[in-house]
Design a protein around this nucleic acid. Structure first.
Length: 211
DNA sequence: CCCTGATTCGC
DNA sequence: GCGAATCAGG
């Protein structure tokens, strides 16, 4: 694969959107995240800010004379003049997303007018715990297992979830006492061993348990 | 461990 | 210019 204008454009777009190098590499295909990062640097868009160049630094910048025989020392060259501005990253929400990205509406700067979808603050008052299937349908063993496991939950936040962390919600979303299990998920499943046990049950099992 | 981006340097 | 290997960090 080579860096065609189109691929570079995709790279630029995704990078500016705050996408990670690996995500971009995955999207482009045929390249690794290293390749993407390398390209990003060569294109000079490594730092998300804009200023073209700090301009002529009055000070003659004393160059480090160290010859760097092999390479490994590379002591971090005293942090460069980083913009103190906190400038938060866009970082697209993972929840919003896998929508059609293929569409290439090449409309000149007609950025879609952010449609303000009115959102009801779905925060209920009571204590409505998410999925939690009614207890009377779960095997006692599985329940016990879950209670035990949830004590060891890694308590991850939404942003910390990955394809291989258990996404079972624990606690009340309306309060601070809410997090996701986060333990290693079963390959191919969204939950860890214990939670898979209560999330997926054979039909027969459910029927037998039915009143 | 998982994942980030940053850098170097042989090709 | 390219990107694997490596580094540094969360």
């Amino acid at each position: 694969m080579s860096w065609t204008d189109e691929r570079v454009e995709t790279l630029k777009r995704m990078w500016s959107e705050g996408q990670s190098a690996s995500a971009i590499a995955k999207e482009l295909g045929g390249v690794t995240r290293n390749a993407v990062i390398g390209k990003v640097h060569r294109l000079g868009l490594s730092n998300r800010n804009d200023d073209p160049e700090p301009a002529p630094a009055a000070a003659p910048e004393p160059v480090a004379a160290a010859p760097v025989a092999d390479r490994k020392p590379t002591a971090k060259p005293a942090a460069a003049p980083v913009a103190a501005a906190p400038a938060p990253r866009p970082e697209p929400t993972p929840a919003a997303a896998p929508v059609a990205e293929a569409v290439e509406a090449e409309e000149p700067s007609t950025q879609p007018a952010f449609v303000p979808v009115p959102r009801r603050p779905i925060v209920p008052a009571g204590q409505p715990l998410p999925p939690q299937p009614s207890a009377n349908e779960i095997s006692p063993e599985a329940l016990a297992s879950v209670r035990e496991v949830e004590k060891r939950a890694k308590k991850l936040t939404l942003m910390e979830l990955t394809e291989r962390t258990c996404k079972w919600p624990i606690g009340d979303p309306a309060t601070d006492k809410f997090w996701f299990c986060g333990l290693p998920s079963v390959a191919g499943k969204p939950y860890c061993e214990a939670h898979v046990g209560v999330a997926f049950q054979p039909m027969s099992s459910r029927r037998d348990r039915r009143r």
